[in-house]
Amino acid sequence: MSKRILCRCEDVTIEEFGKAYRDGFAEMEALKRFTGVGTGFCQGKGCLCESALELARLRGIDPSQVPLTNIRPPIEPLTFEELASLDLPPLVGEMEAAPRGDDPEVGP
C-alpha cells in the first residue's frame, strides 16, 4: 500500500504523525518519543527537520517557533569495541572548565 513516510527508521507516516498530534502529543519532545520519529538508526538525520516543519504546519505557527530537540552525541553509531579501544586519559576534566546555566536542555 502506498505510504508517505516521514521517518524511515521507525516507519512513521505523515498521517500517523498528524494523528499522534491530534491525540494530544502536541509538542516535539512528546511526539518524538511517542511516534519514534528521530529515535531510530539515523537519529533524526532524515526526519527531524521534516517532522518539525510538519508540526509547525499542524500548529499553524512559524517553523522557527518549534524548539529544537536535543541532538546528542555521537553523530554516527560507534561500536563499543572501537570506543573501548580509545585510550585517551586526558579526556577527563574538560567539563570543569566551563560551568553552564541551570537549564538542562541547553546542550547535548
Partner: peptide, 14 residues
C-alpha cells in the same frame, strides 16, 4: 569522518 563532537572543543573522528 567526524563521528561526534564534545564540548568545548573536541572532535571524535573515524
Amino acid at each position: 569522518t567526524v563521528v561526534g563532537c564534545y564540548q568545548p572543543d573536541m572532535l571524535l573522528v573515524r
